[in-house]
Design a protein around this nucleic acid. Sequence first.
DNA 1: TGTCGTATAGTCGGATCCGGCTACTAGGAT
DNA 2: ATCCTAGTAGCCGGATCCGACTATACGACA
Lengths: 209, 209
Amino acid sequence: MAKRKISNTLALAVLGLLQEQPMHPYEMATTLRERHKDSSFKVNSGSLYDTVESLVRHGWIEPVETARDGRRPERTVYAPTGLGQDEFVRWIDELLRTPVAEYPKFMAAVSYLGALGPERAAEALLERAGHLARRIEETNTVLADTVGSGQVPRLFMIEAECAVHAWEAELAWTRRTVAEIRDGSLFWPRAERTEQGWTWSAPGEEPVR
Amino acid sequence: MAKRKISNTLALAVLGLLQEQPMHPYEMATTLRERHKDSSFKVNSGSLYDTVESLVRHGWIEPVETARDGRRPERTVYAPTGLGQDEFVRWIDELLRTPVAEYPKFMAAVSYLGALGPERAAEALLERAGHLARRIEETNTVLADTVGSGQVPRLFMIEAECAVHAWEAELAWTRRTVAEIRDGSLFWPRAERTEQGWTWSAPGEEPVR
DNA sequence: TGTCGTATAGTCGGATCCGGCTACTAGGAT
DNA sequence: ATCCTAGTAGCCGGATCCGACTATACGACA
């Protein structure tokens, strides 16, 4: 599979908005925030203007008007090209079909969980669990206020359900791991350097205290 | 919370390896791959050399030797400084404690699931489910071959368990969503532009076919 | 009427990241 | 003898990304 010309998903968000109506970049940013899409896309104004320019270079969108309102800076309004409309759908299709490696920061830290020692690791994970629980709560509230009240169709906020599901899984794993550390079922070996390389104390022998 | 000087987690991997013994960058890369840590860290040789240099600039590691083996290019061997050893632990602690927004590509695509229409969306998600199931299987095999055979302590591969847990959750959500699309419980509104803005067909009215 | 905070709209320089490249060695295969 | 491939080690140009910044408009309020 050849590499995509554009990889930043913010471009996908831009394309998505322009399917509805022509827009200038600043309006894209505010619209994305209004619709809570800024939790799926990193909306940074600097990146946004770069992204839009890149989409123009690739012929996926084009400027349709440059208006000036009083003495405000002029706004360039963009619309998708035919190519852009096709690629929008193809891109979504591809992203859904094929999982790609993503290297989340949490995974990196878990890789070196051992370095903290059992007590500190358990404590840190427990704090994370609290944050996750709160975030789940907040997102469910947002869902209730929008989809729950019938203001927005469920399909248009489905990514929030997906995110909540993922956080719940992470929360469950985190709590389970804290429990395993505390009850000793996750054995904490004491690594030591010998002439041959590395050895670890085995379960039953003295663990780290 | 002030922004971290270094944010690329590859630097964390480097620090982790150097806790054990001094190493040159190329050896870091091969060691990370041997230990399957390349699924938690994006090990790209270009980035690796940049990262090492950045760690030197910040005083977290320092060159301890530049050896030349025959006429091969010379290798610079690095070791962590005292500061680097402290920061290693602090960084892990912080990454574990506080979840940060990560914008995975899948979430972006799910945000625009609607654009595919029900049949194509279900089909794409189903293909993803297959990939995820395979990846889970593969990782479990690796775990059985390493931790299961007692070659490596479970703690040193705990991130693989964490990843499997996350993929299983994603798989479950994906399958459930396919089912909901197919049995109609995830209503697919037909969006339309009117003079006032946008309106959607409500459940009960004609959905998209 | 001055000015303070917020919304509007976008620019820019520097940091980061990465794919593709060079250059050399060792060990078979032809 | 020569070629070919795989492994060892690192470098670099260009693309991308983002934080911090500029500049104007507008309503509130003292």
